[in-house]
Structures are given as C-alpha cells and as structure tokens.
Computed example of a mutant assay.
Amino acid sequence: MDALIYTVMSGAERAMRAQQVHANNLANLETGGFRANLELASSKAVAGPGYAARHLSELQADAVSARQGVQRQTGRDLDVAVQGDGLFTLQYQGGEAYTRGGNFSLDANGALLFGSHPVLGEGGAIVIPEHSSVQIAKDGTISVQAPGETELQVVDKLKLVKPTMAGMTKNEAGLLVARDGAALAADASVSLNPGHLEGSNVSAVEEMVATMSLNRDFEVQMKMMKAADGMAEAGNRLIRE
C-alpha cells in the first residue's frame, strides 16, 4: 500500500510540473523566436533496504524543442531570421546566451540590442556608427552607409552558432545557454534571412491536447491515492480486530 503511495505522489507532482511547462509554452505563443519547453521525467527506484518495490517519478531538466517557427516578412533593416539551424549570440551577465529572436534595436549610443541584451559579433558587443542605412547580409555581415557616402562599409559580423538543441537549456531570463555553461564557437555555415522574423515554434493544438491529457492523469493519480488510503484503513481495521 505504501509502495503505491510513493508512485502516486511523485506522479501527481510530475503532472503538476508538466502543467506549468505547457502553460508557459502557451503564454509565449506569440513571442518571436520562442522555443517550446519539453517536460521530461523518468522512473527511479527508491534506494535503501526494503524499498525495492517502491518507485518514484523523477523530474529531469526540461529540454528545448528544435522545431522551427514560421517566418514572416517585415522589411525592417534590423529584423533578421535564422534559416535552418542556428542561434544569435548575446552578452549576458559577463558570459554568453543565445536566441532565435532577431528583432534587434539600437540604443542612443548605437549599441545593437536584443531587448536589453547586447548582441555579440566577431569583435565583441556590436556598436553601429552614425549611418543613413544599415544592412545585414545572409552570412551575418553588418554594413552601414555613412551620411553623405555612397559605399557600404562593413562594421562587424554577427556571431552565429549552431549547437545541437539537446545540449541547450534555458536560463532564468528565458535565453538559451549550453548545459555545461561553456561559450559556443561561431559557425560560418549558419545562414540568415534579412528583413524577416521567426515566430514561436509553439503549437497551440499540441499544447492544449497535452494539457487535457495531464488533467486526466492527475485525476487518475488522485483516485489511486484515495484507493491506497482505503486499503491502508482496511488493513488497520483488520489488525485492530
């Protein structure tokens, strides 16, 4: 009876955790470049003498979906999307973080930003000088046309990386980082689609179906917990009699 309670309690916890993951995915349905989280769990035997028949549902670090989102054309000079696999590199708390979002902006000093995070290039944080136009090429090269000039001048090149998504996780800011915390090397094979933005890769239908399935799982866990409680009460009654 107590062996059943181990399984039921950990299973209910796993269902509640999974609900949170899918709710977060749905909340970011319209967030550009967002990568859906994948909730993972596995069975684990309870260690110790006399616990061989008891198993727990052990939560694991969430994985990140590698599926690509739909791209839409914006025509904006500082909007860019990754074609195929690849990530943009950002400066984050003295290290690096990565994203698929490409809706960049400039601050008053010309620093290229994604939200509040500096975008990194081959020479470090990218700063765009005074210009009349700016262009991002398919290979990530950033060129500007200075006021009064007719020629484009290369400023820097975006640092583009191409890791396997199995080796990536999300930090507290929702940005992608390597599981081992190491900075990733630039990959020249990554190609961009200038003037476009990639949307979230979350499927509303899949998330809703998963949520309904988890609701049913949680209800079953609660019924099993009541059954285990009834079995324990019946056993105690037999002992008393």
Score class of each variant (00 low, 15 high):
Ala137Gln: 08
Asp156Gln: 02
Ser133Pro: 01
Asp62Met: 15
Gly140Cys: 05
Gly33Cys: 09
Gln91His: 10
Leu197Lys: 01
Asp2Pro: 06
Ser116Ala: 15
Leu152Trp: 03
Ala18Thr: 15
Gly95Met: 10
Ala188Glu: 09
Val64Ala: 02
Ser133Gln: 10
Ala108Ser: 13
Leu112Lys: 02
Gly75Pro: 00
Gly50Phe: 11
Val202Pro: 01
Asn201Glu: 06
Lys223Cys: 05
Ala232Ser: 14
Leu175Gly: 00
Ala111Asp: 14
Val220Ala: 15
Ser116Lys: 10
Asp139Ser: 02
Val154Gln: 13
Glu233Met: 04
Ile136Leu: 06
Arg100Asp: 12
Gln221Tyr: 07
Gln153Ala: 14
Ala45Val: 07
Val8Leu: 00
Ala188Leu: 05
Asp139Met: 05
Gln20Ser: 12
Ser10Phe: 03
Pro129Lys: 01
Leu59His: 04
Asp156Asn: 02
Phe34Cys: 07
Gly115Pro: 01
Leu112His: 00
Asp180Trp: 03
Arg240Pro: 12
Ile5Glu: 00
Gly32Asn: 13
Glu151Trp: 12
Ser57Ala: 14
Ala232Arg: 04
Gly101Val: 09
Lys159Asn: 08
Ala108Tyr: 04
Asn201Ala: 11
Ser213Ala: 15
Asp156Pro: 01
Phe34Glu: 02
Phe88Glu: 02
Val144Ile: 14
Asn236Asp: 15
Ala15His: 06
Thr150Phe: 11
Gln71Phe: 09
Thr150Met: 14
Asn193His: 10
Leu106His: 05
Ala183Glu: 09
Val190Leu: 05
Leu175Glu: 03
Gly84Glu: 01
Glu122Ser: 09
Asn103Gln: 15
Glu122Gly: 13
Met212Gly: 11
Gln135Phe: 07
Asp156Lys: 06
Lys162Met: 13
Gly11Lys: 06
Leu29Lys: 02
Arg100Ile: 10
Asn201Lys: 08
Val70Ser: 13
His131Trp: 05
His55Lys: 12
Met222Ala: 13
Arg216His: 06
Leu158Lys: 01
Ala137Phe: 09
Glu122Val: 04
Phe88Met: 06
Lys157Ala: 15
Pro118Gln: 15
Gly124Ile: 03
Val144Cys: 03
Ala186Trp: 01
Ala45Tyr: 11
Ala185Trp: 07
Tyr92Ala: 12
Glu149Asn: 11
Glu58Val: 12
Ala204Tyr: 10
Val220Asn: 15
Ile142Arg: 02
Glu96Asp: 08
Leu175Trp: 00
Gly11Trp: 01
Ala185Glu: 08
Ala97Leu: 09
Met9Arg: 08
Met225Thr: 02
Ala210Cys: 08
Lys44Glu: 14
Glu30Phe: 12
Gln71Ala: 13
Arg100Trp: 10
Gly199Met: 08
Thr74Ile: 11
Arg237Ile: 09
Pro163Tyr: 00
Gly124Cys: 04
Asn171Leu: 08
Val161Gln: 00
Leu87Glu: 02
Ser191Pro: 10
Ile239Lys: 13
Thr89Phe: 02
Asn215Asp: 11
Gly123Leu: 03
Glu219Arg: 14
Lys157Phe: 12
Ala210Ile: 10
Ala53Asp: 13
Asp187Ala: 07
Ile126Pro: 01
Tyr6Gly: 03
Gly181Ser: 11
Phe218Glu: 00
Gln153His: 14
Gln145His: 11
Arg100Lys: 15
Arg54Pro: 05
Ala108His: 04
Ala63Gly: 15
Val134Phe: 05
Ser105Ile: 01
Ala188Ile: 04
Gly148Leu: 08
Ala53Val: 09
Ala125Val: 13
Arg76Pro: 04
Asp187Cys: 03
Arg237Ala: 09
Gly181Gln: 06
Gly94Arg: 03
Gly148His: 08
